[in-house]
């Protein structure tokens, strides 16, 4: 009989303690961020999708070596380049040299797993993570990024 009542009493006590905790929480400030109205700043190392990095002249640093393409586990990077002949003056004479110039750099973001191996494997620091996270669309094509185009848009 004693156990019967003591259990009831302890039960009620535990319920009262629980209610006390939620009562205190009720008066504490709200911790959530009302997302579309206010946003948080992404941390410095936040890994969004990749972007091409430009040099001082506004041209992509990329030399189209293709390391990123080979390192990518998902095969979501595709790039193309063409050889361009250009002239330099070396020791007083004009020489014609060949250089690879990036013509296409596409990222298929639908299969990207944001592992960062492309950035890690780039010896030229030509790609970097963007801080963009507001990516939403109902169309698949919206996630096929033409990074060269995006670079041009950023510069203009």
């Amino acid at each position: 009989m004693g156990a019967y009542f003591s259990e009831i009493f302890r039960g009620l006590q535990s319920l009262a303690i629980g209610m006390g905790i939620t009562f205190r929480e009720f008066f504490k400030p709200v911790v959530t961020v009302s997302y579309p109205m206010e946003t948080l700043k992404m941390s410095a190392r936040y890994r969004g999708h990749i972007e091409l990095v430009e040099d001082e002249k506004g041209q992509p640093k990329c030399v189209a070596c293709g390391m990123c393409q080979r390192a990518c586990p998902s095969g979501c990077i595709s790039l193309a380049s063409e050889s361009v002949e250009y002239e330099v003056e070396e020791k007083g004479e004009t020489k014609t040299k060949k250089k690879k110039v990036l013509t296409k750099y596409n990222l298929n973001f639908t299969t990207c797993s944001l592992c960062g191996q492309c950035v890690e494997n780039c010896s030229f620091g030509a790609i970097d993570f963007s801080k963009e996270y507001n990516l939403a669309s109902s169309r698949k094509e919206d996630f096929h990024f033409d990074l060269l185009q995006r670079l041009k848009e950023r510069n203009s």
């Binding site: 941390s43 190392r45 936040y46 890994r47 797993s113 944001l114 592992c115 960062g116 191996q117 993570f129």
Partner: peptide, 15 residues
């Protein structure tokens, strides 16, 4: 997750 995000760059599926 905030602490880990600052270090690793992602919140859930870290690499």
């Amino acid at each position: 997750l905030d602490i880990l995000e600052r270090v690793t760059g992602s919140r859930l599926t870290y690499c």
